[in-house]
Amino acid sequence: MTDSAVVGRTGPRARAAAFLHRHARTRLALLLSAPLAWLGLAYLGALAALFVTAFWSADTFTGDLVKTFTWANFHDLVTGEVYRTIALRSLGVAVAVTLVDLVVAFPMAFAMAKLASPRAQRWLVILVLTPLWASYLVKAYAWRVMLSSGGLLGWGYGLGATVATLSYLWLPYMILPIYAGLERLPNSLLDAAGDLGARGWRTFRTVVWPLSFPAVVAGSIFTFSLSLGDYITVKIVGGKSQLIGNVVYDNIGAANNLPFAAAVATVPVVIMLVYLAAVRRTGALENL
């Protein structure tokens, strides 16, 4: 340590260090440069370019982009009854998956955070995380086997099967933020509520739920967004049902109509942006 400090005091490195030490704004600018270039310029730029494409059209014969401004894609999207149905259905599926996951995950996370011993906690977290590494596709396929008419559950395919499978897939994403939120919640608060006469349900309603709400919202961002854009699970267990993701996918692949796909893709983006804007004040984004 002494070595580098002494050597550093004379060279250009020392001057750079001293300069950085004195200029906090320069330090900040350097720290922000790369992340902002990547996410602010490249990523947002890509999203913007996609949005611009939504106002173009594709030549019906060649599939080439026709770069003249048109509202036609959005017009089709808004007036087409089938798209409205699909958009509402996708929204419904995303909401249903989020609610199912919330109801299943909250008691699990609570037991993990507040009832299990610290040693057991570590193992429980591992148990919850492990399924995330098992391939998403294989899990969906395992559900397909279970849901098939001769399978373990035998419910058949459709929207219900899609909701069940998606809830299964994204459950860990709901458990982990809630667990982390509940773990941060001091036990003394729960004891205080009890000392002041609150029973279990009342403690939950007035102490646990409000304080863990940001964590719940953080989890819901994952379950909601992951469900909203999914087109693979619905292909595996959804039978003939279609979600927004399928419309986007089919318009890129089979129909080769990127402008219309881009227009359809703005629907989940707008829904997510509204959702993020609504939950930003809860502090959920810091709980992800």
Binding site: P35, A46, L50, S225, G229, P268
Partner: peptide, 23 residues
């Protein structure tokens, strides 16, 4: 900035996918 960092995971993967591939 924090919103920007969360955005790629908060937006559906298919949107990120086609936006990047288009770019």
């Amino acid at each position: 900035v924090s919103l920007l960092i969360v955005l790629p995971i908060a937006l559906p993967g298919i949107v990120t996918g086609i936006a990047l591939s288009n770019t």
